[in-house]
Amino acid sequence: MSFQDEFNSGVLEVISPSPAYYPDTSRLRITLGDPPERVRWRSKQNLDFAYLMMYSQPKAVFYDQLDDILAKPHFITTMKIAAYDRIANKQSRFVLDFCQLGFIGKMFRCVELPWLVQLFFMFYSDKPVDRLLENEIHTKVSLLATDDAACRRAKDELWVHYKPSLFQHIGTQPSLKEKLKKSGNAEHPSDRFYNTTVEVLLKIVPLSEASENMTSDGYVIIGKFDSRCIAEGVVSQKLGAFSELRLTVHSVSDNRAILSEIFIWGQEAR
């Protein structure tokens, strides 16, 4: 696929920092219990985002971070309408969040990008970029809020979540091979799926293949959430097509979990 016309018109640009831009990543302080390789990866990502924000800041009104995504139709129009509606209605906000995954789909006003750039430069090796954003929002509201409830209301005014999500992350070649997608979120780490299986209902059941993992009501178990709260499963071609997919929670929990993203790949895409 060629993008020559887009390059010639200036719609697309390719930029790359000088190697001198990056510090020595072999001596980074280990934090959050992450292995050194992940600390280096997330630190470089923070510096990459800071560089991109500095380059982009004078070029536009809004800045949005996208990376290896599948977007819903007309996503640009949807985002612009949401952003300009808040401006027209004089509603304050720091970030418009169009995706619940990490830093994807986070829209900022370009005039406010220097706040994030300074934050990333100061703490690039301490935390991943999404946690640094959470810290920035918390800092902005904590000095004004009188209690936890007021803090949450103030945070919701600055960090506005757009639903439903406009993007899904589809990268199959992550820059860090240990990078995994997990259920739950940073604010409520206990709101995850525990003791839960992933099951499918086959259109035609070949008993010799499916009987071992079949439930009493005819579903075939293809995976379950493990101790990391990650579920992966493969439907063997021998089982044929299926008509339904469900999650079965096998124990009572004091917490609740929201499943916001499901990724299904066909055999040709794996």
Rank of each mutant, 00 (worst) to 15 (best):
D24N: 12
T31H: 01
L66W: 07
T139F: 15
S183E: 04
D97W: 02
G240N: 01
R40Q: 14
V61A: 11
I15F: 08
Q118F: 06
A186K: 06
A149G: 06
L132Y: 02
L12H: 12
P19G: 09
W265Q: 14
D24S: 10
T77I: 06
R256K: 12
C229H: 08
E112W: 09
F108A: 06
D126E: 15
A145I: 05
E268D: 06
L119R: 13
I204C: 06
A149Y: 08
K127C: 12
C99F: 06
F62E: 03
S208D: 11
I230T: 06
S165W: 00
H169R: 05
R42W: 13
K155Y: 05
S216V: 13
S211N: 07
E232R: 12
G184V: 01
D147P: 02
Q45R: 15
I30P: 01
D226K: 08
I137S: 00
R192Y: 09
I222N: 09
N255Y: 11
L12I: 13
F193S: 04
S243W: 03
S56Y: 02
C99D: 14
F3Y: 11
N89I: 03
P73M: 14
A60D: 02
M107G: 01
L113M: 14
L12Y: 14
T215V: 04
S243T: 12
D130I: 03
E178G: 11
F75R: 06
G171C: 07
E112I: 07
H138I: 08
S56A: 15
